[in-house]
Design a protein around this nucleic acid. Structure first.
Lengths: 157, 157
DNA sequence: CCGTAATTGCAAATGAGTTGCAATTGCAAT
DNA sequence: ATTGCAATTGCAACTCATTTGCAATTACGG
């Protein structure tokens, strides 16, 4: 299922449309947009891209939601929210999970290079809870917003 | 502002209505409910408590939202969402921040005893981002829901 | 007790996300 | 290639949490 690997090189791992999901042109577009996106996107953002790409074709936002739900159910997409926003964002799972720092002013997401829990043992909570995953979110201000952090609304005080 | 401390004892730290917020009977009730709650509550849950306590008085859910917004603005309340729910929950800030494990089935929140980052140094992100805080969320299944985890919808796969 | 600004209740609006349904499409079997 | 049928789609109407406009009420300093 992986691309052929040329010795000594580190090819971008190519991502194919999942074989266990029925292919439709709408889903293929959603897949294309999300799997090549460099950051999590909201359904509305994906829809906007879709409209541009598919000019002439009709497209419903509900199709986007339904498609994303299918991808999520099968584990190809992760859906989450971040501090300071009210809408869900969707991210194509590239093998390992990711964490972000989210700017409280402009809501930009800065990916963390590694997961601080990769080798930690917070997964022990006694018998009371079986941990299957975690979500970590740093927040603060990105370089551009720092300094003007006190102007206007920041989503948090 | 703190309660008198009797030697050798560990008194429950008493919480008073913030002096920098205008007192109204509605806000006092919201304060009372939230500051004595053992877990984050949604606006609707707070509203339900309010209705019970204040039988006879009229009460609007919008007042709850507005009150919570005031408390949050001044830093007395933290508002967040957890995986698998769509509504915000509000928590009275008792000095230090808290993290939770959230059950993907029943949505129960189990508080973590300590913050794994208390002494860690993930707060360094180079010059690109100034971290002011973080949010950690473990997810999985609580004791009661484990075992029946595969029945019905779990909010995640 | 009065005056005024802040707060409230109410009802209507918002906005993300969902759903029912009839029309369309994908695709496997012919 | 054509057919048949279940899955998917577009659409419009809906849900539900949260917000907002506004007139009436309340808190609180003078």
């Amino acid at each position: 299922m992986k691309h052929e690997i040329t010795a000594g090189e580190k090819p971008a791992e190519e991502i194919y449309f999942p074989k266990d999901i029925k292919k439709t042109k709408q889903r293929v577009e959603i897949f294309r947009i999300l799997s090549t996106a460099s950051r999590p996107m909201s359904a509305a953002e994906i829809y906007q891209c879709l409209i541009k790409t598919m000019e002439g074709t009709n497209f419903a936002i509900s199709t986007v939601y339904r498609g994303l739900a299918v991808f999520e159910e099968k584990g190809y997409v992760t859906k989450s929210t971040w501090m300071g926003t009210e809408t869900y964002c969707y991210e194509w799972n590239q093998g390992r999970h990711r964490h972000y720092a989210v700017c409280l002013k402009c809501h930009k997401l800065v990916p963390l290079e590694s997961c601080p829990f990769e080798h930690a043992k917070i997964h022990k909570l006694g018998d009371d809870f079986t941990v299957t995953g975690h979500k970590l979110e740093l927040y603060g201000f990105c370089r551009e917003c720092k300094g003007k952090a006190l102007d206007g609304k920041c989503g948090i005080k």
